[in-house]
Amino acid sequence: MTGPTGLATRKITPDLARGLLLALIAVANAHLYLVERPIGYRGYPAGLTGGDAVVAVVQMVLVDGRVFPLFAALVGYGVARLAERAPEPVVRRRGLVLLGVGALHGLLLFPGDIIGAYGLVILLLAPAVASSSRGLLAAAGAIGAFAVFLSSGASGPQGVPTVPSIAAPTLGAFLAAHPTEWLATTIFSALLTAPAVLVGVVIGRSGTLDDPAVHRRRLTLWAVAGSVAGVGLGLPLALAVIGVWAPTGAVGAAVAAAHAAGGYAGALGLLGLMGLLGSVSWPGQRLVAAAGTWSMTLYLSQSVVFVAVFAVVAGGLGSTASLTTATLVGLATWLAGVVVAGLLARAGHRGPFELLVRRLTYLGGTSGTS
């Protein structure tokens, strides 16, 4: 068994994808902090108009439900790399560590946490990582179909915030609501993202992201086909978000299921686009990729900023901010994180949570390079 991959030997494209993905995660989470107003579909405020309506449609077809499957695919890529150099118990330990980090994040800050869900998926699916790629894809398809079916049940306006504790009036109430919220989110998110983790393992084996210049044709196919399918399947629910129509009954269920299915397609499209961006040089590329090596630390830091700015028990901006304002706050948080973490990473510093996860994962094994 060998230890963690050193910075000098890392492939740039997966880290670049993680760095870019953090911007989409910030956008995807920011609107969940908008509370104390009527809440419609997918946690978006009801009655959006003007610029907010445009922002909502763009997010619904390109970001909402697309980002976390993409994140999951990159997690699966990492699992494939880990399985190449470490036995199954180490892979399971990685899952357990991520579950623990996710629990702390969810209980203390943001119960909409996704890290715990990925940890649970890794923990449960670790024995299957050694299966054939064909078997992993078949399992991904079966689990994905079931997840889409379950998603059809969430077909109407929510009425309440996705994360109700953000509107809690006191710190005690804020924290008391987190265990139940985090547990429910983790279980459901694990089901939704498990297919993408399995696909990510297959992508990791294929070498597509390791040498994107050689695989431009495949990446272009992913980018075009995935994006077209993601937008097409997401548009009906996007129009419901801004009040163009209100699908009900079987039609509403079909629209919700289509949006969920489009999430997997859209995630593949985004991954293809990020792979293409990794196949050419452009200004800031190295900085964004360097920040991608801090992806967990930056993801957690976004929650610190969002709670401080938006939560009712802190800054309270979530009670009055528009969707556009929340989105801009999210992008500004991402940009600041890229600059700070990118410069630190390029100076040879690892993210504190990345170090913690690696040390706990390899506890008792070869320390390697960290």
Score class of each variant (00 low, 15 high):
M1C: 13
T9M: 11
P14S: 03
P14V: 09
D15M: 09
A23E: 02
E36Q: 14
P38T: 01
Y41R: 12
Y44A: 11
G50D: 04
G51S: 15
V54Q: 08
V55E: 10
V55P: 03
A56T: 11
V61G: 00
V61H: 05
L62F: 14
V63M: 01
L70S: 00
F71Q: 06
L74S: 09
L82M: 08
A83Q: 06
E84M: 12
E84K: 14
V90R: 14
G102Q: 09
L107K: 02
D113V: 01
A117H: 06
L120K: 04
L125G: 07
S131E: 14
S133H: 09
G135R: 15
L137D: 03
A139D: 03
F146V: 11
F146R: 03
S151L: 03
S155Q: 12
V160W: 07
T162P: 04
A167I: 10
T170R: 06
G172S: 02
A177F: 00
T180I: 15
E181V: 07
T186W: 14
S189R: 15
A190W: 01
T193W: 13
L198E: 02
L198C: 06
L198K: 04
V201T: 01
R205Y: 00
L209S: 00
P212K: 05
V214T: 15
A225T: 15
P236R: 10
A240R: 00
I242Q: 04
A256W: 09
A258H: 03
H259T: 10
G262Q: 12
L277Y: 10
G278L: 13
W282R: 12
P283A: 11
W294F: 11
S295P: 07
F306Q: 08
V309T: 13
V309N: 05
V313M: 02
L317H: 08
L323H: 03
T324N: 06
T325I: 09
G330Y: 07
L331M: 01
A332Q: 01
A332H: 02
L335D: 00
V339L: 14
V340A: 14
G342T: 03
L343S: 12
L344C: 07
L344A: 12
A345Q: 09
R346D: 12
A347G: 11
A347E: 12
V357D: 05
R358I: 10
T361M: 12
S367H: 15
T369W: 11
S370E: 15
